[in-house]
Amino acid sequence: MGILLLKLVVGLGNPGKEYERTRHNIGFMVVEELARRQGVVFRKMFWFPARQAKCRIGEHEVRLVLPTTYMNRSGKAVWGAMKKWRAEAADTVVIYDDVDLEFGGIRVRAKGSGGSHNGMKSVLEWLQTKAFPRVRVGIGPKPDGADMIGFVLGGFAEEELLKLEKVVERAADAVETIFSVGTERTMNEFNQLQIG
């Protein structure tokens, strides 16, 4: 049996019951879906501020990570997880919500900026590199005149709730596909899809 290759999968979101089903926590939902598929449960970490679950996806040993730092300080937990398990940036997949992407859209990238997303800004600041794969999950568009913070921390609209499970499943599929065929091929497969 060969050596398992370690991967990290980090969902960005806010801890606590009040945030569970909010738009800003769709990254958490995707990582929780991956844990559900593998039949693993999350445990609190003592070395850095996160909950984690261990599983195997294909030939990879995977650590699923949910930071408990709150969104704007997510980078501390991502950096801590990478140090703890000696994971490279290229082997760390970050999943987060994107208000600039229509609800149901999924965009996979091998690297890039964090845009206006404060959680990703924190990750980039802590890691000092843009070269790590990420899966953006669309939660937009924000209605004209709506407060940004209120929108992302709000619950999904009724028509969005009907599609939410499918969106989360598709984003989880994208993460698994990154592990099986690589980021570039996953981009080709998922980036044109829109769950309507």
Rank of each mutant, 00 (worst) to 15 (best):
M1W: 01
G2M: 14
K7A: 01
V9Y: 07
G11A: 13
L12G: 09
G13C: 14
G16C: 12
G16K: 13
K17A: 11
R23N: 12
H24Y: 02
H24C: 04
F28Q: 04
V30Q: 09
V31N: 11
E32G: 13
L34N: 02
A35K: 00
A35Y: 05
R37G: 02
G39Q: 06
G39F: 07
F42N: 01
F42G: 00
F48K: 12
P49D: 15
P49H: 15
K54I: 07
K54T: 03
C55E: 05
G58A: 12
H60A: 02
V62K: 00
L64E: 05
P67Y: 11
T69F: 12
T69E: 15
Y70R: 14
M71W: 09
M82A: 13
M82H: 14
M82C: 14
K84I: 10
K84Q: 13
W85N: 08
W85K: 09
R86F: 12
E88H: 13
E88S: 13
V93F: 09
I95M: 07
D97H: 12
D100P: 02
G105F: 12
I106H: 07
I106V: 11
R109Q: 08
K111H: 02
G112M: 03
G112R: 03
S113C: 00
N118D: 03
K121V: 08
S122K: 10
S122P: 09
W126I: 00
Q128A: 01
T129N: 01
F132Y: 07
F132Q: 04
P133A: 05
R136V: 08
G138K: 15
G138L: 15
I139N: 14
I139D: 12
P141F: 01
P141K: 10
D147V: 06
M148N: 15
F156V: 00
F156W: 02
E158P: 02
E160C: 10
E160R: 12
K166T: 10
E169H: 01
R170H: 14
A171H: 06
A172E: 11
D173C: 05
E176W: 05
G182A: 06
R185T: 04
T186Y: 02
L193K: 09
Q194M: 15
G196S: 14
